[in-house]
Amino acid sequence: MRPLPALALAALLAFLASAPGAAMLARGLGLEGTPFDTARLLGLAGQHLLLVLGGAGPAILLGIAVGLWVTRPSGAGRALRPVADAGAAAAQAIPPVVVVALAFPALGFGAAPTLLALALYAVMPVLRATIAAVEATPPDAVLAARAMGMTEREALWRVVLPLAWPAMLPGVRTAVLLAAATAAVGSLAGAATLGTPIILGLQTMNELLILQGAAATAALAFLCDAALGGLAARLTGGQGAAMQAGGDRT
């Protein structure tokens, strides 16, 4: 999605999530329930964002590092390539909520199961995008760089990465959006996120609460999307169109 409409949608949804906005909508729709305090919702949004950054941030870096390692022309990492593919495919098939649920008995109530799922699901799209991006760099460019006397490492930093990284950005976008969604699901295992009002509302059939949590979660996702889209457009100077390619979600 383009950054500007995404930002507008985020603002609209954030207004609907706030106590006055939700109360207005509830009157219009004829819903009942007591609205959630806006300040509390903002606090949850902060915790949600912290969880996403803390879980997905290091995992994204790890995914890029492993992706570069397994695509090096020489080196032990190449043997990992088919494993990385199979792992990414399996991770894409298994829904994150199942990983949260399976980690829950082992890691207990709280943020830990969610962090594990977040990290797992942030590595895979980035890893896959990195491998694809590096393999799509023209071999001639690398050959030319090596012929000019660059070492393999120099060729990686000065030729492969500058050419490949715009194609890696969609993987980062998928990872962050998946992380924002997974964090919301994590409130089932006791993580304090914007999913908390949704779960609470579903348990007590407080429709207003569900609406607020859902609107806030969606607003956060659109905000992340807009931020990443804007960043990509600025960094790549128009090549950011690749970011809108969207794609795989679970």
Binding site: M1, P5, A6, L9, L29, L31, L177, A180, A181, A184, V185, G195, I198, G201, L202, E207, L208, I210, L211, G213, A214, A215, T217, A218, A221, F222, D225, Q244, G246, R249
Partner: peptide, 19 residues
Amino acid sequence: LGGVQVVPAIALFGLLVPL
């Protein structure tokens, strides 16, 4: 449909319930 993909599933289900 691309916009829908951005919305986390838990939020979409949650929005659909009161609507």
